[in-house]
Design a binder for these strands. Structure first.
Lengths: 189, 189
DNA sequence: CGTCTATTTGAATGTACTCAAAAGCGGTGG
DNA sequence: CCACCGCTTTTGAGTACATTCAAATAGACG
C-alpha cells in the first residue's frame, strides 16, 4: 500500500496493518485551502484535528484588549488544532488560518472517538503525540519566564528555520509576546 | 477492593477490574519524603513518574545565569515528573523538591512501559492526562505572552488557591517569571 | 533568643511599550 | 511594466514596566 505522509507520520510511533490503514483512511478527510483562509474562528467549537500534508498555518488568540498572540505555527508533518476546544468541546480560544495554500488531512472529533475504539493502538499514538506536545510547551514556558527576549528570538530562529522562511516579523513578535517595533530594535543589535 | 487515591484518580478516566488494580498496584511504589527533600536533581536521568498522595512539591529550573524558574507546583492528586527527561531518558532540565512532608506513589520508567503492554487501557489514561497537561501548558504560554504580570498573578491566585496556601511569594514570583521585589510592588497596588 | 530567609521599600538603570512618522515591499490593476 | 495601495518594518521620542542593588523590617524555625 502507498503510504501518504500522514501514514508515515503515524508509523513513526505505531505500526499498522494494511486493513488498519484502510480503516483509518476511511475516517480521514483531505482538503485544500487557499492562502489566508480561516479553518477555525475563535469562539467556535473546534470539531477537527488537523494534519498538515502541505503548506503552513498559524494559530493565534486575540484578547479583550485586541492584542494578538501567536500560539503556534504548523508546517508539513505537524498536527494542529485548538486542543482546548477540541478535547472539551467548548468555544475555541484560538483562530487558525493558512499562511499559504495548504493541503490538510483531518479527523472529525466523532471519528477520532471511534478510531480509539476500533484501533486502540491510536491511543498509544496520540499518547506519544500529546506527551511530546506537553514537553514542548513546558519548555516554551521555561523560555518565556527565564531568558531575555533576544535569547528567545535567537532560539526560535535556530529551532524552527523552516518556519522562519514563511512567517513575517510581526508574527514572530506575536509568538514571542513582544511588539513588532521592539523585535525590530532587537534585530538592529 | 479499597481504592487508594491514585486508583480513584485513574478511574476518573478508565475503569479497572480488581485484577487489573492488583497488577497495577504491584508495579507501584509508595514512599514518604520529609520537607525540602529533593526527589530529582537537574542533570540526572529521571526514572520515575510521581503521583502526590499527600503533601506538595515544586519543580524548577536554574539556568546558567543562576536564575531560578518554577515550572509547576503539585499538590494532592497531581501527577508530576520532569516529562522531558522521563520520556526521552535524557538529563533532567528540572529539579523537584517537596515543600512539606509528602507521600508519593510512583512508577518506574520500565514499569510504566510494561504497564502499557500488560494493560493497554493505561495508554488511554495517560493519553488523557498528557492531553490535559498540553492544554494547560498552552494556556499558560498564552497568559505569559498576552497579559500583564498583575493579571497573571491574579489568575494564579484564583486558579490555584490550594497552592497559594503552601508556597512563598518568592516561589510564586519565580513561577510568574518576575523578581520577588517586583511581585511585592504589585501587591502594594 | 538568635539566625536565616522572606518580604518590603526605594533609588537608579535597563527593558519594553505606545504613538507617530517614514521607509520598504508585495500584490493588484491599469 | 509601472504606479499605486496596503501592510510590514524601521526609527525615534516619551513613558511605563521590570530589574538590580542595597538596606530595613518582618517571619519562621531551631
Amino acid at each position: 500500500m502507498f503510504d501518504s505522509l500522514i501514514l508515515k507520520n503515524i508509523q513513526k510511533h505505531i505500526s499498522l496493518s494494511d486493513s488498519e490503514k484502510a480503516d483509518f483512511l476511511a475516517m480521514l478527510k483531505i482538503k485544500d485551502f487557499p492562502k489566508k483562509e480561516f479553518i477555525l474562528q475563535q469562539g467556535q467549537i473546534c470539531k477537527k484535528l488537523y494534519f498538515v500534508e502541505k503548506g503552513s498555518l498559524r494559530s493565534f488568540n486575540i484578547n479583550e484588549a485586541g492584542k494578538e498572540s501567536t500560539i503556534m505555527f504548523a508546517v508539513q508533518d505537524w498536527w494542529l488544532t485548538d486542543m482546548y476546544s477540541f478535547v472539551n468541546q467548548k468555544p475555541a480560544v484560538l483562530s487558525i488560518e493558512t499562511l499559504e495554500p495548504s493541503c490538510l488531512a483531518y479527523l472529525h472529533f466523532d471519528a477520532l472517538e471511534k478510531l480509539y475504539i476500533k484501533i486502540p493502538k491510536f491511543e498509544k499514538f496520540f499518547r506519544i503525540i500529546f506527551q511530546n506536545a506537553y514537553v514542548r510547551e513546558q519548555l516554551r514556558v521555561l523560555d518565556n519566564i527565564s531568558i531575555s527576549t533576544e535569547q528567545r528570538y535567537n532560539r526560535f530562529l535556530n529551532k524552527y528555520p523552516h518556519i522562519v522562511e514563511k512567517v513575517s516579523q510581526k508574527q514572530i513578535a506575536s509568538y514571542l509576546g513582544v511588539t513588532p517595533e521592539f523585535l525590530s530594535s532587537i534585530k538592529k543589535n
